[in-house]
Write a protein that binds this DNA or RNA. Structure first.
Lengths: 233, 233
DNA sequence: TTCGTCATGTAATGGGTTACATGATTAC
DNA sequence: GTAATCATGTAACCCATTACATGACGAA
């Protein structure tokens, strides 16, 4: 009933900070831009939007369904090419206090930033996060994973004999995944450290949009054939 | 109120099939043997056990708290070294119909076997699963992941320009993880195919305990220093 | 005697999904 | 005209967690 989600709330605020949107579009962005990890349904999104409005972090703008009329249509098509005025219903916009709240969330470190459920979404908004916070979050997550690795290794050492090959293989693959993420984090941390050029190093403002050696990283195969599929993966 | 979980239920039946246990021990096994992926709390385990009893798949044996008495203690310590009679309270045991039910679950293929939430636990009990089913599950999961990869690539091709470097890096890492799991599955499928020696290929019975080249796979570093830590990772 | 672990449970809450209901607009 | 997609929402449920309550045992 209360809808004070955490991840969803954070992501909604973050996306709306970039630009106002209506619910449907918001959901698509949620499930593509950020969506490798989580997929949200309307059943959670719309109620969440409502409570965010109630708290004064968002405003609703009811854009009347606007039937396609005389010259207006031509104007719209000619000027915007597409999207802008299509047929939207309720546009949500971040308020000043909403922005303030989001910035406070952004600045928080601690377990709530690097546990499994939160880390992904925090990383997704690193572009709007100060370098100090980014560092703390990356390092926090890494040490969390290293801790987990230690326990896995200890547990494996204790139980190895009792386990059959499949269970063992599952364990091994799981550990390898965690080790891989640790290496990834280490690279990212290195990038952050190296990348201390530009502005002396305060907090927010128009944040730096590029980090470390991002450009030199292998960018993966060239674009798959155009596929009209959308929505959840 | 109803506790008909799926994953938890499956795991409990599977563990109890190997040997009877009480709840506390069950939970530890859940969170180590199978626990890279999920950790369950007592709040879910105990109610689950109750409903499994109600459905006739489990029996409860109330083992009286048994205060340490005269010779019995010595006997126990001498014979079992530890564990066996320590202080257990309620031992759960799989019934015949419970075993039957579990075997039916084991034989099921379809999305419910290879989606994210279920695949791990299904794999963990591959030691008790027939080769045909193992193959279907592995192949099902692989094609599911390939499907997902296709969507990710398409979506990336559509949105690449609009995304900042961190979002892009997150996307890239996510795709790499999926690709890695696909390669892992491919290796496993190869192992399964190659490993058609031994018994002609019926169904269950005392199931084959080894698969493919499991022995030759790099088994990862040698045992971490003994660590008394337990419980959830 | 106090702390850690073993051991079992319940009530409240959380954070989400599914299925449903509704309807406008666009593309074929 | 009909199918797909855009668009918004609600109610019922699901699966789990957290916090709490309770208590015995072993070791320092």
């Amino acid at each position: 009933m209360s809808r004070r989600s955490g991840v969803l709330e954070f992501a909604v605020l973050g996306l709306l900070r970039e630009s106002p949107m209506h619910g449907y579009e918001l959901r698509k962005r949620l499930n593509t831009s950020l969506g490798v990890f989580r997929a949200f349904s309307y059943g959670s999104l719309y109620p969440c939007l409502k409570t965010l409005v109630q708290r004064g972090w968002l405003t609703e703008e009811h854009e009347p369904a606007r039937p396609p009329q005389q010259s207006e249509r031509l104007e719209r098509d000619a000027l915007t090419g597409s999207l802008t005025g299509r047929r939207a219903k309720i546009v949500y916009r971040l308020t000043a206090s909403g922005r303030e709240h989001f910035e406070e969330l952004l600045s928080q470190t601690g377990p709530d930033a690097w546990e499994d459920e939160h880390f992904g979404v925090r990383f997704a908004f690193f572009g709007q996060t100060s370098r100090e916070v980014r560092m703390r979050v990356l390092e926090g997550r890494r040490s969390r994973l290293e801790e987990r690795l230690a326990k896995m290794r200890a547990s494996l050492a204790r139980t190895r004999e009792r386990l059959d090959d499949y269970t063992l293989e599952l364990q091994r693959h799981g550990m390898e995944s965690v080790e891989r993420e640790v290496r990834w984090l280490t690279e990212l941390i290195e990038s952050e450290r190296t990348g201390r050029d530009r502005e002396a190093g305060t907090d927010s403002g128009p944040p730096p949009r590029r980090f470390g050696d991002a450009g030199t990283r292998p960018r993966h195969r060239g674009a798959a054939p155009p596929d009209p599929s959308e929505d959840t993966a």
